[in-house]
Design a protein around this nucleic acid. Sequence first.
DNA 1: AATGAATGAGAATTCATTCAT
DNA 2: AATGAATGAATTCTCATTCAT
Lengths: 189, 189, 189, 189
Amino acid sequence: MARPRSEEKQIALLEAATEVVASVGIGAPTSVIAKKADVSEGTLFRYFPTKDDLLNELYLYLKQDLCEAMIEGFDRAAPIKERARTLWYGYVDWGIAHPTAKNALRQLSVSEKITEKTQARAAKLFPDMEAVAKICVGKGLMAKRSSAFRDAIFMALADTTMEFAANEPKEAEAYKTAGFKVLWDGMIE
Amino acid sequence: MARPRSEEKQIALLEAATEVVASVGIGAPTSVIAKKADVSEGTLFRYFPTKDDLLNELYLYLKQDLCEAMIEGFDRAAPIKERARTLWYGYVDWGIAHPTAKNALRQLSVSEKITEKTQARAAKLFPDMEAVAKICVGKGLMAKRSSAFRDAIFMALADTTMEFAANEPKEAEAYKTAGFKVLWDGMIE
Amino acid sequence: MARPRSEEKQIALLEAATEVVASVGIGAPTSVIAKKADVSEGTLFRYFPTKDDLLNELYLYLKQDLCEAMIEGFDRAAPIKERARTLWYGYVDWGIAHPTAKNALRQLSVSEKITEKTQARAAKLFPDMEAVAKICVGKGLMAKRSSAFRDAIFMALADTTMEFAANEPKEAEAYKTAGFKVLWDGMIE
Amino acid sequence: MARPRSEEKQIALLEAATEVVASVGIGAPTSVIAKKADVSEGTLFRYFPTKDDLLNELYLYLKQDLCEAMIEGFDRAAPIKERARTLWYGYVDWGIAHPTAKNALRQLSVSEKITEKTQARAAKLFPDMEAVAKICVGKGLMAKRSSAFRDAIFMALADTTMEFAANEPKEAEAYKTAGFKVLWDGMIE
DNA sequence: AATGAATGAGAATTCATTCAT
DNA sequence: AATGAATGAATTCTCATTCAT
């Protein structure tokens, strides 16, 4: 990936892509993204040599943001349930606060365009979570499953929860509580 | 009098579409689908006037199959946990047995192409599940949430479970058990 | 051209074609014409081996109708101006009475699909007119021009006249009178 | 900064379209037009977003050319018959000199593709004609008809005349004289 | 470095015509 | 003879990417 100077433009492109991908999906034309970023069609390809590159970078960019939101306020010294709850709320609240980002992320996640490599890089963005999850659910039936499975369950529950919370804002708090209960009671023996 | 329209071809098209959508996603070219179904491009449009129509029909076709698999062996008289388990295994096992179908269904589910109308028709395919789910989790915290939320949680967990079970067939049984535990312990108070 | 039995169907097809061509133009799908004629798609091609054949036959069919309308009430013994007027009103009134037929005819006339041969056959449909026109304008400047030119002028004026008369029915009579005046005063020295 | 959009190409496309539309009609494939203009298919759609847009622009382009030819040499101070004759010859001679343009214009005129808006824009191209026509035939029977009718008669006669003049170049002058006579004697009381 | 014009390989869809029934 | 399902070439239009300026 060439590294042309203006980081500003790079971010403008990623933000534009977030919006367009969220609303139109992976099939979003690069020209539309460029226009929304206030950048010429050609310039997009100076920052991201390929549309697929753009999508992969976008995936990382969004994951990054999400992860930062999740660790915020995380206290290694807190009791285990508290730590789990912090992560849970960090995740769910981020999704509610950034619906387009969340939607774009979902579109990217199911698309075949995100490479293994990108997924690997994404995992490294948040090594803490790995560790935390391990500690959180070190006992019980789940302990024997891979951490990937636990993460996936966590996310599946959180995704569902944020979806409903976003749709019915008045019930948001209730959904979040209910979702966390499923997670906790289900995963801890 | 003329050659009768063959259901065979319609199914060939749906099966072909399943495979192609599973591997390429919603953007799958109709030409590829037609070729895989061993049918001319024009014929595809005789059976499905529009690509979107094809996708919507495919969604119903797959949901239908899934639902049949789920109710199989369902016994209204069985104890509640047994009924839940039947549905759970029906769902998860179908996904493991038909990975491309399951994948295609996921692609369709997140795409904006599936109309409200289609979703309504799909819901009618499986009224039992509604009822069952209501009975299963009539108590506890979840009782206060909408049944849609419970369904969504069910599916989210099952999707995740089948994903892992399909990837590591040797561990399949363990994943299924673990997944069901999360569902049951999490949802029942 | 094969001559399958039912003349009824042949006419149904021509009538259907008239309507469809009038409203959609030469590009009208044969399938639409067949459906409007209450005949199968394949059958159309038993009556007219080719779409172009259908269009050419349609041209003749409409011209025939028009010509019959024109000669009606024609009196060889009447004074020359009267004869011209009869033709004029025959033509213009036909156009007003059968707007779709007239429109279809116009579409066909400008299309490149009508062959020389068809045009020749059309000319023979109405040999009288030839003769009449010759007599009508045997003197003056026009006498030296080809009869084809006179016919064309006649039709150009009549087409224009019927167009306006059809659009403003209340003024129809006035347009017809005005149009005939141009023809007569212009062509007779 | 980037390559400027070349008016040259736009004109090449319009000229190509003129030829192709003249010979094949409105159904002319955009691919053929693009190739004849020595431009890629994609480029055609950069200059004219839609085939219909191309056709409408072509209509204006040709009308423009025709109108310029008509006003050339027009002298407001000349006697009325002279003014009418100038327009007449301007029109007819243009048609004879540019047979393909004339033919394309006819095809466009009868097609349903030319919008009201385009027709309005075309009318503005040549406000003089309106005025002149009014003066020319301010008296007599025609005075009571709408100017649109007079214009239409003018054009119908001129179209017919140029058709014949173009086909028999040796007789061109005679046809033009004869045609003008019909116009003049017919329209002036 | 940035621009946006140019490209051409597809994409979805239509339709005249053929052919099995 | 009639039907209408099947075909596939042709059509309009889109879009990622390249390249002249």
